[in-house]
Design a protein around this nucleic acid. Structure first.
Lengths: 151, 151
DNA sequence: GATGCATCCTGTGGCAGCTACAGGAGCAAG
DNA sequence: CTTGCTCCTGTAGCTGCCACAGGATGCATC
């Protein structure tokens, strides 16, 4: 069995960081490669060792991802949250833009749900050859379609 | 000037197919490569020539994509709509599964919107160093986080 | 027949955001 | 010293395309 607990200031390996952050090992290395995470210190043997601040950063990234921020947005947020003391304004701007994206995605999805739902419920579920689902995709199409393609 | 209209049964080039279907040329070739579209006939010089059924298929694909179906789902739908006469049941199954996916995405996005909206509006917009947006990403984290990573 | 231009061809590489190897090295326990 | 885990680098794959390079083809016009 491995040592169960290190002191408060201990450094730890990538596996532990992965487990406690909930981020895949490969993904951690990927974040380092694209410079989202700063390169950690290494043991004599070349293994990465991390500290508490690394864990904090990684958890920040994971939560931001869950909220749908892109890695580029997160890069910005990290800079804003970094040593160069962000103004709340700047952060708010990033978040607001993102919120607008989310709302537009929501609108699209809602429309989509409506169409699909209506279509699926028109579907008898019987073995009829004409299926409204296939119909909506095939027949109910934009004006240009069905026209001469050489117009 | 090029011939403006071909006869009803004419075959046409990839550029026209692209323009009238609204699908990028490169994308059409891509669909052929991954066998979503069957390989078209060719001219003596090796150029692809398409007919009306190709246009129909392509438009079907485009509309399905707009409804958020994956290419794999579309592959299934195309098979079901193909010569082997689909039962409405089978199509319904694919569409229903997809609808469930959409609903689950909707639920996630709605939650996400709520969280972000609440947070952003708590944001004073002033130059305070503590930003609730950064806070929510950083401090308000799951139980395991902040615990000893070696647990 | 030659010229010029648009369109087409294949093949390759790139984008996000990872994930999954292969093939080797480090490291601790028994 | 050996076993067995963890870690290392590098590369390739995934989805759904888009964009190029470098060449061939097709067609109207001279």
């Amino acid at each position: 069995m491995r040592t169960a607990a290190l002191s408060h200031s201990a450094r730890f390996a990538i596996g532990e960081l992965s487990r406690s952050s909930g981020v895949n090992i490969e993904t951690i290395r990927y974040y380092e490669r694209i410079k989202l995470l700063s390169p950690p210190s290494r043991t004599a043997g070349g293994r990465r060792t991390y500290g508490w601040s690394d864990l904090r950063a990684l958890v920040f990234i994971r939560r931001s991802r869950q909220l749908g921020f892109s890695l580029e947005e997160i890069r910005t947020l990290l800079k804003l949250g970094g040593p160069a003391k962000a103004t709340c304004n700047e952060v708010r701007e990033v978040a607001t833009r993102h919120l607008e994206d989310i709302r537009s995605k929501l609108r699209d999805l809602r429309k989509l749900e409506e169409v699909l739902d209506a279509t699926v419920s028109r579907c008898s579920g019987q073995s009829t050859p004409d299926c409204p689902v296939l119909d909506i995709l095939d027949i109910d199409r934009p004006a240009s379609v069905g026209a001469n393609p050489l117009n």
